[in-house]
Amino acid sequence: MLVFLFRRIAAGAVLVVVVATATFLLLNLTGTDVARNVLGETASRSAVTAKSHELGLDQPLVERYWHWVEQAAQGNLGSSWFTGDSVNQSLMDTLPVTLSVVLTGLLIAAVLSVALGAAAALRGGWVDRAVQFAAVLGTAVPSFLIALVLVVTLAVQLGWLPATGYVALGTSATDWFRSIILPAVSLAVAATAATAMQVRGAMIDVLRADFVRTLRSRGLSTRSVVFKHALRNAAPPALTVIALQFIGLISGAVVVEKVFGLPGIGTLANSAAVRGDAPVLLGTVVVTVGIVVAVNLLLDIAYGWLNPKVRVS
């Protein structure tokens, strides 16, 4: 188990480095005059040269890359070309917003998908068909379209929940929840749909297993057979899908944050992308991939914990 974990951590680190390098090269090989962009069309040539030197853009690419890696390894992701703000600080400000939304969405998806998937596998008939049909729709419709519908109906028309803005958890737990519930739900739809289908399939397989018949032959209640034994056996494959869905949730969050006016990491990445602010964009990429790796690692551990064959060896 320890060796397994160590290998996963190493693989995750390699992944972050590879993605960071690719992003760095992509952002720095385009040949646009960054200093000119930062200062605007009217800036003098000498000012542009000075700015270029200040940003270190007159250095050779390899040296700039190495400098970035050195700093990043020490936990410093540099500062914005345009505002001079520390990238670390910007990420610290925006990350809680995105994580609130994404993790709440993940939680909703986990709970709902188990309920729907298990119901479809157990009840069969029209429940099963309804869940399957809803899952096809849910996987297909982009989260920001759902977000738009929710904003227009629940927030703008009915005024039940705030349409925009974020309240920190530390400020007010209720307001925090009210500010993130709609974006979290919009994100959860697709993840719920995909995971519910996986839970359904896994449950159908498990319910056909020999040991389920034997458990039934011992007179255990349906509740125990289904919710204690079958669900526990169906959990590992469902976890694998949830891990994949997490990446989709982060992707969706980038657009959904704009709909709800949330100052999250997606908003940060988006404005950096529009301006061409490489250090900020690079920072967001590294941190997002880092989070994906971390969450996958946690799910791997959960997977191992759920599976005695991995845990006890």
Binding site: V19, L26, L29, T30, I247, A273, G276, A278, N296
Partner: peptide, 16 residues
């Protein structure tokens, strides 16, 4: 598959 698609697209649209 480990990288969120939209983030990659943002980078590409900013850079390319």
């Amino acid at each position: 598959m480990a990288v969120p698609a939209i983030i990659v697209m943002l980078v590409v649209m900013a850079a390319v």
